[in-house]
Structures are given as structure tokens and as C-alpha cells.
């Protein structure tokens, strides 16, 4: 009897020990409204402000990736842009649109003196700030997807439900019609996995050329760069966008589309 009790207690201790020792490497999957969220804290805390919480979904409904990441000059990595309040106040970065006319004003010297309400609209990490645009309400009529924001952004544009602008007057350059490069096939490394058809058209319509080449895809000749899912999961190549903003890597069949012969 004593032996059984001893073993039972020991099992419980071992079980609890294992459970508590679990450091947990698995990341929590973001909720649809959180997907694509970026926290920017270059100088915020130094200025005694909460870090900025930027929601991609709200901005991508209205603008292509190129407008912000090429024409306005936001880097592709969070906090790599070195945004200062003075830049915004001079009409650059967030201040390009958030100038008090096109959208609510960003970073004014006397904001803090009046109230922090306007600052809090962006500098909101850890604060209970009610967003002006509710995710569920705003995206209600858009075609659904399984992962990421839960929205099929590509289809939403095809169906005319969103019309992201590729031009901001006074900022963007008037460009010629894009000469779209051919789609191409990439072999899957795992046997039985459908091959990938990379569509230049789908990507250039939102990104142009210089957003991806050469910063993300440096390989000159097709086949010279070896892509692995490990690299991609670590944020390189396709992972620069897919996994953080564009549909996530869980959605295998959106890239691995070609039937296996």
C-alpha cells in the first residue's frame, strides 16, 4: 500500500516537474485582427511614450505594399526605418498621410500639452485604446480565408471589394505600365509535395520590382539560390512577407499548387 502511494506521489511530482519545466517554444498564433501587427519602439519609450502599434490590415486595404515600402520609404523589417517624430512632423513616413488632412495628424509638439488622446492612437502598446476602425466591422464583406487575417486579400481586390492605391500625389513617381515578367516553376524538395508556380504578376501588382529585388531575392540566375522552408520560416525570401503580413506559411497549397506528375 505504502509502495503504491509512494509511486503515485512520485508520478505526480515527476509529471508536475515536467509540466512546469516546459519553457514553451511554440508561439501563440495571432488572432485575425492581430496578424501583421508591428510594434515600433525606436524612440517612443525614450520619449516617455508607449511604443507604436501598427496594424497592417487597416493600411493594406487602402494602399499597395509599394506605396509604403518604396515611395514612403518604410523598411521591410520592424524598427529598421529609424522613424523620428520630427520626420512625421515634416511630412515623411507616417506624416506623409497622417498630416491632419488626409488622415489624423501624427506627432505634433503640443499634443502632449493638450491631451495624450491623439498620441495614444498610435503609441498604444499596453494601453486600452479603442480603435476607430473595428476589424470585424471593417472587413465584414471581404472574402474569407483560413489563416492570417482570415481574409483573402487577393480575391478581395479581384472582386473590387478593396481598391488599394498605388500612388500618392507629391510622393509617388508617375510610372509607366509595368512589364510583367513570366511566372516560373520551383521544384518542391519533399517528395510528393506539389511544385510551386511563382506568379510574378500577382506579386508585382502590389510590390513593383525594387521591393523584392535585390533586397529579398538576390539570386540573379534562376536555380542558383536554394530556398528552404527553414530559411522561409526564419523570415528570409518568401518569409519576409508570408508569415508576418501576407498569407502565412501554414497555407501550403496556396504556393504548392502544381499537381505532381
Amino acid at each position: 500500500m505504502k509502495k503504491t502511494l509512494f509511486l503515485a506521489v512520485l508520478s505526480v511530482i515527476v509529471f508536475l516537474g515536467v509540466a512546469l519545466a516546459e519553457t514553451g517554444v511554440k508561439k501563440r498564433r495571432p488572432l485575425p485582427f492581430e496578424y501583421g501587427r508591428v510594434v515600433i519602439n525606436n524612440y517612443s519609450e525614450g520619449a516617455r511614450l508607449a511604443p507604436v502599434v501598427f496594424d497592417h490590415w487597416q493600411h493594406r486595404m487602402n494602399f499597395t505594399c509599394r506605396v509604403c515600402h518604396v515611395d514612403i520609404g518604410f523598411a521591410m523589417e520592424a524598427e529598421a526605418t529609424d522613424i523620428r517624430a520630427v520626420d512625421n512632423m515634416s511630412g515623411y513616413y507616417c506624416g506623409t498621410c497622417h498630416d491632419g488632412k488626409k488622415a489624423f495628424s501624427s506627432c505634433e509638439l503640443d499634443f502632449g500639452l493638450k491631451s495624450t488622446e491623439t498620441c495614444d492612437r498610435c503609441h498604444s502598446l499596453g494601453k486600452k485604446v479603442e480603435r476607430k476602425f473595428d476589424f470585424a466591422e471593417t472587413t465584414r464583406g471581404l472574402p474569407k480565408e483560413r489563416f492570417g487575417n482570415g481574409i483573402d486579400w487577393e480575391r478581395a481586390e479581384d472582386e473590387g471589394k478593396i481598391t488599394p492605391s498605388d500612388y500618392i500625389e507629391g510622393v509617388s513617381i508617375k510610372r509607366d505600365q509595368l512589364v510583367v515578367q513570366k511566372d516560373f516553376l520551383l521544384d518542391a524538395k519533399v517528395e510528393g509535395m506539389p511544385e510551386i508556380i511563382f506568379s510574378h504578376k500577382k506579386h508585382t501588382v502590389w510590390n513593383g520590382c525594387e521591393l523584392c529585388h535585390p533586397e529579398i531575392f538576390i539570386g540573379i540566375k534562376r536555380g542558383t539560390t536554394k530556398y528552404s522552408m527553414v530559411d522561409i520560416y526564419e523570415g528570409r525570401f518568401c518569409g519576409a512577407c508570408h508569415g508576418s503580413v501576407a498569407f502565412p506559411l501554414l497555407d501550403c497549397q496556396r504556393c504548392h499548387t502544381q499537381k505532381v506528375q
Partner: peptide, 17 residues
């Protein structure tokens, strides 16, 4: 300074392409 920072980034992307 802000203008230079933004245009330097844009120019770099364009030159590298």
C-alpha cells in the same frame, strides 16, 4: 534631414535594382 533620409532609401532601392 528627413527628406534626405527618405530619398536616400528610395534612391538606394532604385540603384540596386
Amino acid at each position: 534631414g528627413s527628406e534626405r533620409k527618405v530619398y536616400a532609401t528610395r534612391l538606394k532601392m532604385c540603384k540596386e535594382l
